[in-house]
Design a protein around this nucleic acid. Structure first.
Length: 431
RNA sequence: GGAGAGAUGGCCGAGUGGUUUAAGGCGCACGCUUGGAAAGCGUGUUGAGGAGAAAUCCUUUCGCAGGUUCGAAUCCUGUUCUCUCCGCCA
C-alpha cells in the first residue's frame, strides 16, 4: 500500500508510474474520496466529542429523561455519520490497495517481460562433443524424476524426485545456508560492491507453509485467480513462496533499530496453481505445482533498502558462480516487476539441454509498500517509528538442479557434481 | 475434535457499567540531589488519525469484529490466539 500523503502530493506521478506497470488506477476518484473521507471523519470526531462530554457530565447521580434523550440524539448523529463514512472508507481502501508500488527511477520502462534488460552475461557455456540431453531424459534414465506416477497420485505438474537428485537438492540447500551463515563470505560481497550495510548472517528458518487470508493479503502477494491454492475447509492459503509467510512474520511489531537488518533464509515447499499457463513449460520439472525453494527475506531501514537489494542479487550471483553455472543478469522492466515491487532483478541460468537461459532467481525490493500494510515498523535511533523496507530473493529453487544436470552431463549419461557440493554428497564426484 | 480458563501499555499486574483522564510496580528517558555515583525525590513514557508555528488539544486504541447502553476494559454475540485436561497424532 502506498502512503496516501504521497498520493495527495504526487497524483500525476502515481498515475504515470502505475501505468508504466500496466495498472490503470483511478487517482481522481481516490483523491475525491480522500477529501470526503477527511471531512466526514472530522465531523464524526466532533460528534463523538459531544457524546463523550455529555456522558462525562452525567457521571454523578442518575440522568433524567431529558439528558437521556439528548444522549440518544447524539448517538443517532454518530450512527448516521458512520453510515455515510463506511462505504466511502471501503471504496477508499479498495482504490488505495489497487495502486501498485512506484518503480525506482532506474527501473527500465517496458510493456512486457520482453522489455527486460540483460545487464550482464557471466560464465562460459559448456561445450559438448555430443548432443546434450535434457534433464528429463537423464532424470528418467537415472530414475531421479518420475512424473507418471506423480500424475497418477496428484495430477499433472507434480513429480516424484528420487535418489541422488534428492541428495543433490539437499546438498545445494545446505551449501546455500552455510554460505549465508558465513559472516566473512558475506563481508567480502559487501566490500566488493561498496555496500553500506552490515554483514550480519542470515537466520535459517522453516516457516509455516500456509497463511490466513487477511495476512496473505497484507503482503500484496495473494493472487487468488492464478497462483494461490486455497484450503477449502479453512481460512488458509498454501504459500507460493516462503516470502509470503516470512514478510508478514513481524506484522504489528515495532522493532528496535539495533535489531536491523533482520535477515532470514527460509526453506519451504511452494505451491502454485499455474492457472493460465496450460501447455507452457510442460517438459520436465521446469514449471510444477509444487517445488521446494530456499528464500531470503530481509527487513532493513529505508536508507539501507537499496543496498540490501543489490546485496541479495550479488549473493545469488556468487552462489551460481561457485556452482559453476553460467547465467545472465536481468533487470526487470516496470511491467514485469510486480505490484508491490519498486525494483526487481532476475537471474536466468544457462541450461544446455534447453539450449536457453531460463529464469532461476528473482530478487524483489518492496520499499515500505508491504510494511505499510503488514504494519512492520522499527523505532529509529531518534525514537521515531518508521516503516521497515522489505527485500526478498531466491537462494535456490529446484530449477538450478536442471542446470546442473544439463550442463554437467557426461557422454555416458552421468552428471558431475559441482565441486562445492561434493562434501555434502559424501565426496561423490559424479552421480 | 471435546471441556474449561484466559488475552489490559515496552514488561508485570489491578480493574465486574459512570471520580479510570487505565491504579500500582518494573524498565527506560530527562531533571533535582551528589565531589562523582548509587539510593531518594520529581516529571515524562502504546500506537494510529487530525488541528496547531509551538506548547498543547481532539478522536481512536484494553486480542479482533459486531451489538446492548445516555455512558463499555467491564454486559451480550461471533471470531482469533494462548494455557490446562481429555481424545487423536509424527
Amino acid at each position: 500500500m502506498l502512503d496516501i500523503q504521497f498520493i495527495r502530493g504526487n497524483p500525476k506521478a502515481v498515475k504515470e508510474k502505475s501505468k508504466q506497470k500496466g495498472v490503470d488506477v483511478n487517482v481522481e476518484e481516490l483523491l475525491e474520496l480522500d477529501q470526503k473521507r477527511k471531512k466526514m471523519i472530522a465531523q464524526l470526531e466532533e460528534s463523538r466529542q459531544e457524546r463523550n462530554e455529555h456522558a462525562n457530565s452525567l457521571k454523578k447521580g442518575k440522568p433524567d429523561k431529558a439528558q437521556i434523550n439528548k444522549g440518544r440524539e447524539l448517538k443517532e448523529k454518530i450512527t448516521s455519520a458512520e453510515e455515510v463514512l463506511m462505504p466511502i472508507e471501503k471504496r477508499f481502501k479498495e482504490l488505495l490497495t489497487q495502486i501498485p508500488n512506484m518503480p525506482l527511477d532506474e527501473v527500465p520502462v517496458g510493456k512486457s517481460e520482453n522489455d527486460n534488460k540483460v545487464i550482464e552475461v557471466v560464465g562460459e557455456k559448456p561445450k559438448f562433443s555430443f548432443e546434450p540431453k535434457s534433464h528429463i531424459e537423464i532424470g528418467e534414465k537415472k530414475d531421479w524424476i518420475d512424473k507418471k506416477r506423480a500424475a497418477k497420485v496428484a495430477g499433472s505438474r507434480f513429480v516424484y524426485l528420487k535418489g541422488d537428485l534428492v541428495r543433490l537438492e539437499w546438498a545445494m540447500n545446505q551449501f546455500g545456508v552455510d554460505r549465508l551463515s558465513d559472516e566473512e563470505w558475506l563481508k567480502n560481497i559487501i566490500e566488493e560492491n561498496n555496500l553500506k550495510i552490515s554483514p550480519k548472517p542470515f537466520i535459517p528458518i522453516l516457516p509455516p507453509a500456509v497463511a490466513k487470508t487477511a495476512v496473505y493479503e497484507s503482503t500484496a502477494r495473494l493472487d487468488k485467480e492464478e497462483t494461490t491454492y486455497k484450503l477449502a475447509e479453512d481460512d488458509l492459503w498454501l504459500n507460493a513462496s516462503a516470502e509470503h509467510t516470512l514478510a508478514p512474520m513481524h506484522s504489528g511489531e515495532i522493532i528496535d533499530q539495533t535489531e536491523l537488518p533482520m535477515r532470514y533464509v527460509g526453506l519451504t515447499t511452494a505451491f502454485r496453481r499455474e492457472a493460465g499457463s496450460y501447455g507452457k513449460d510442460i517438459e520436465g520439472i521446469i514449471r510444477l505445482h509444487q517445488f521446494n525453494k530456499l528464500e531470503i527475506e530481509s527487513f532493513t531501514t529505508a536508507e539501507q533498502g537499496v543496498d540490501e537489494h543489490i546485496f541479495l542479487v550479488m549473493i545469488q550471483r556468487k552462489l551460481m558462480e561457485e556452482l559453476g553455472l553460467p547465467y545472465q543478469v536481468i533487470q526487470k522492466c516496470t511491467a514485469d516487476i510486480g505490484g508491490p515491487n519498486a525494483s526487481g532483478w532476475d537471474i536466468d541460468t544457462w541450461m544446455a539441454g534447453q539450449n536457453a537461459y531460463r529464469e532461476t532467481h528473482t530478487a524483489d525490493y518492496m520499499t515500505d509498500y508491504q510494511a505499510r500494510r503488514t504494519k512492520t515498523r522499527y523505532r529509529s535511533k531518534k525514537g521515531e517509528v518508521e516503516l521497515v523496507h522489505n527485500n526478498d530473493a531466491t537462494v535456490f529453487s529446484e530449477r538450478p538442479l536442471i542446470a546442473i544436470i544439463e550442463n554437467f552431463q557426461t557422454e555416458e549419461g552421468d552428471v558431475k557434481v559441482p565441486e562445492v557440493l561434493q562434501k555434502y554428497m559424501g565426496g561423490k564426484k559424479k552421480i
